[in-house]
Design a protein around this nucleic acid. Structure first.
Lengths: 309, 309
DNA sequence: TCTCCTTCTACTCCATCTGAGCATAACCCT
DNA sequence: AGGGTTATGCTCAGATGGAGTAGAAGGAGA
């Protein structure tokens, strides 16, 4: 940095690119040890919009042309950039792509999303990491509070975010859980060696961004038909359900699920059947666009959370 | 701009500051003809976080110390800044404050939120501006499409966003309606004289930011107890209801509303009564914090929008 | 071929939630 | 005292969501 000149602002762009392969949610990463999110920076003269700049960078780094893209959040804390003498403000995006186009060159790689957040996957019951590592570590943090009031506040936050003592587990609070773990010193950002809590690290604050993306995506499933961005044009209801389960991290009652999306007008049968599913051949469906005209908030509806009340 | 030097990025911050006075939702504005949102820019060296920078600017411009603040969106299109030779990227925030502290000095002023979006207020039935100006103008735009496919797409968007032909009116789609009006050329940004559609203009793209804020706030009412940020610590249910109505722009069934917030555990009676409401004295309530532990998404629940389905 | 296993699909049951209306209470004003 | 206004309690029907039972239709293996 030139002395006497103001610190320049650098506008960074990062993308959380999600796909679902089979039953697994995937996250596109670049680099190694630690991995990171595809990222670049705005060309203040060349890029007409932030989103275009993001698409350009992702194409260059991974060879993928993004479809559905949505802005997530902007991060601008003073100490978060890798370089001195500049202020890095990053606009993070969530992107959804269909499975398949595994990038080859460029070192970009699909990774299991839950390898970064093992405590978020309840599909096979409570994650082992939760009871064996996360909860004990959090309890230690609560007990470690000097004053009573601080301890009580910590206890309440743990209870709410991690569903202890009868509080429900809210699948959408991914970011809040991550931040709580971070605040408790149980997770180290910026690729430092793991704390007591398991999960792969990521570069800079990328893991935090990924956590926010997962939470947002889980929430959006509920009231916008975003799942279909991750699926081919036609699919079976079983496949649709497995994608929703992969993202939400919980199992769904399949009879109710099919009633929900069918009667709800979200999908319609194409008339074909797919016999490759194992048991009885499944009817093939497609997304029913007209639902957008009929219902204000068409989504798939996750369990345990009525509208309000 | 110095030739040969890269265009610098300037990071702007803007705040949509909302209060409710009596029955009216208010927006804090600065300047005149057109008015604008309180705004400033990041000091890359001095401001530790974006949010702190925002609070600093708002305090300087309006004398208000913000309480609840939440990030809305970042805007960075190339042509949006007022100055040549720099790239203005703005991070917009939504802030909620309690009624009362009307700023005096500094030219900041509270204004009726709906003076900028007259078509969004359904409390007294469909807004006159909607049927007399907005819909006819939109129909002209639809009819003006050259090709059939384009016209059909326009018609569908109008139907969905403005609840025509049996589609429901979704109170949360404030931004999408605004963008549709803008795209149709019915609204002029940057304080140009009004188009065919009524509503006060604002500086730059501030009106768009305000539209997004209102939509976000309406949505958030449903699943987070944000209303209480706008109310004193204790209040009557009638007052609570009027605040929700002011923001959502629709009337609620008061018996059901009281059942919802009461049985839902959102509020609890203090034991006092308030006889100043006109008719029968009303019981005074307070927000019940414990609800955060009990329910994943505590909110007030607006009509016409079940969870999913 | 027959049996078992798997997945897909159709229904039923029931608790809860939501929307709407009826009725009453308790204050003010004229 | 009567009428107007706001507050509050209660009922009822229809919609919604969670959970279970049962049968259909394929494949794998005995």
């Amino acid at each position: 940095m030139i002395p006497g000149m103001a610190t320049p602002v650098v506008l960074g762009l990062s993308a959380v690119i999600v796909a679902v392969t089979g039953e697994e949610p995937r996250l596109l990463t670049v680099g190694t040890s630690p991995v990171g999110l595809p990222s670049g920076q705005l060309d203040p003269e060349g890029d007409r919009t932030l989103e275009r700049a993001l698409r350009r960078w992702v194409r260059e780094q991974t060879g993928i042309d993004l479809g559905y893209v949505e802005q997530l959040y902007s991060l601008g804390d003073r100490d978060r950039g890798p370089h001195q003498g500049e202020r890095l403000v990053t606009v993070a995006y969530l992107a959804l792509v269909r499975e398949g186009p595994v990038p080859v060159q460029s070192g970009a790689r699909w990774r299991d999303f839950y390898s970064f957040f093992p405590w978020e996957d309840f599909r096979e019951g409570p994650p082992p990491a939760l009871g064996s590592a996360v909860v004990p570590a959090l309890e230690g943090w609560v007990a470690g509070a000097a004053e009573g009031a601080v301890g009580e506040a910590r206890r309440e936050r743990v209870q709410i975010m991690f569903g202890r003592r009868g509080s429900p587990w809210d699948v959408e609070r991914v970011l809040e859980r991550y931040e709580l773990l971070f605040e408790a010193g149980l997770i180290s950002e910026a690729g430092a060696p793991d704390g007591p809590v398991p999960g792969e690290p990521m570069a800079l604050d990328h893991r935090r961004i990924a956590a926010q993306a997962l939470g947002r995506l889980r929430g959006k499933l509920r009231y916008r038909p975003v799942v279909f961005e991750l699926l081919p044009p036609t699919f079976t209801l079983g496949r649709l359900q497995r994608v929703v389960e992969a993202l939400s991290g919980v199992r769904l009652h399949s009879q109710n699920f099919r009633r929900l999306v069918g009667k709800g007008g979200l999908v319609e049968p194409t008339g074909e059947v797919d016999a490759s599913t194992g048991g009885r051949p499944a009817a093939v469906y497609r997304f029913r666009r007209e639902v957008l005209r009929e219902r204000p908030a068409p989504g798939v509806g996750l369990p345990g959370m009525r509208t309000s009340g």
